[in-house]
Write a protein that binds this DNA or RNA. Structure first.
Lengths: 234, 234
DNA sequence: CGGATATACGTAATATTTACGTTATTTTGT
DNA sequence: ACAAAATAACGTAAATATTACGTATATCCG
């Protein structure tokens, strides 16, 4: 029977298990990290895994992803973006399951440590990701690539930092995502020329004797600029 | 019950109808077009719609999309890319259905007219898209936005043209996607500077008395350049 | 053969990116 | 008290890319 045959539509269609898996990125002031979990169900119970769940009830996929993030990190209003669908027929030996992977960016500071421990979770550096269940390593790879492309043209990197941050920290964030060093003088020039940061008169002295001024992202300004055709680029 | 509860995993999970919908782009030498179909099932039977089908059997989502495209256009090896998932609980009054939208780029020339007619399909200009069923208008909007961003940095526009094409045609293609006019002298300079086009000694005289040289995309060259860190940009 | 039309090639001004030099602030050690 | 050390902050020139145009060429048609 062809997919486009119309004889029995809706009545006898095949229903499928739908899951959501979340690639959770964090930044610990030096390196980009990934939050991984010990899988709680068979098959592969106890192995490292992305956090995920089956979609049920009347939640949209996106809402299901949000709920998973809240349940495992205690955070709401997290940056969340759909990555792609993983649907190879045999990707999960437990059953035919398609998974719609999402990635999210969180500020490690805001983070609910207790929740994380309750869920047997651990932060991993990107170059130390262990073998993960199913096709989760591929998901991570795809998510990192997506993040690399996206942070350049969308001001989403700020979600990985606390509300107030220094320019050297912002630079270090981009370096850890791009995996290459940037020239601090040019970085500073480029980011400041976009006029989407608000400079405060406070300094963070945790990284140097001189201290670096704290800035915050000016979302309102960015939204206005965006309507005028401005494109973020760093 | 929480999504992440593990008491009954796999056994009593909720299965969901999964569909694929395809946004099919074409280019008729002047304008970007969309292939739309008359819906063949209730609800909304007879209304304009994207082509789609439920996912069944052991096909991956991507393979299901490919098969739909083959059945409706007679074309194989079409450029196809996942757009995003549409999953509002009430998006389809027929049942709870999530749809994973894909967009594809085809060369109208290669096209099997009989197939299209068999499926009650019609090409529409982008500014003349009728009301579509369900959330299909939103899918189209999202697909157009995605295409606009993607053609700038990936050499995918060539999929909308015949194998051999003139530079003015390529420019017209980009103009119809970006919806703004480009300077032909700068366009030519920029595309040729990337060394991914092969110039032939043949001319197409259908658009002018002088005729314009035919070029084709050098995929092998592009793949080599890509490994060297080159990024397409137009 | 001259005008019309679209194609093809060229150049100067402007803007952006890159590479690197210099100054400033503060702590620490002598 | 002051020099050394470390990071942050500011600046400038060269190289590269983009933009805005001017001009030449091939062909058809009247």
């Amino acid at each position: 029977m062809k997919l486009t045959d119309t004889a029995h539509m809706y009545n006898v269609q095949q229903k499928i298990l739908v899951a959501v898996d979340c690639i959770i990125f964090g930044f610990d002031t030096q390196n980009l990290k990934l939050l991984l979990f010990k899988r709680k169900v068979d098959p592969f119970k106890g192995d490292w895994s992305l956090i995920g769940a089956f979609v049920k009830g009347n939640l949209s996929i996106n809402d299901a992803a949000k709920q998973i993030l809240f349940e495992t990190t205690g955070l709401k209003d997290i940056y969340l973006d759909e990555l792609k669908t993983y649907s190879d027929y045999n990707r999960d030996p437990g059953d035919r399951v398609i998974s719609i992977a999402h990635y999210s960016l969180i500020s490690i500071n805001d983070f609910d440590i207790e929740k994380v421990e309750e869920f047997d979770a651990k932060w991993f550096n990107l170059d130390e990701i262990p073998d993960l269940v199913l096709d989760h390593n591929q998901m991570v790879k795809d998510a990192v690539n997506r993040l690399r492309k996206k942070v350049k043209h969308q001001p989403i990197g700020f979600n990985l930092l606390p509300e107030y941050f220094t320019l050297p920290k912002l630079q270090r964030l981009y370096e850890s995502i791009y995996q290459r060093e940037l020239d601090s003088r040019n970085f500073r020039k480029k980011i400041l020329s976009q006029n989407i940061l608000i400079k405060t008169d406070k300094k963070d002295k945790s990284e140097s004797k001189k201290g670096a001024f704290l800035y915050c992202f000016d979302k309102d300004k960015f939204d206005i600029l965006k309507t005028k055709g401005y494109n973020f680029d760093i």
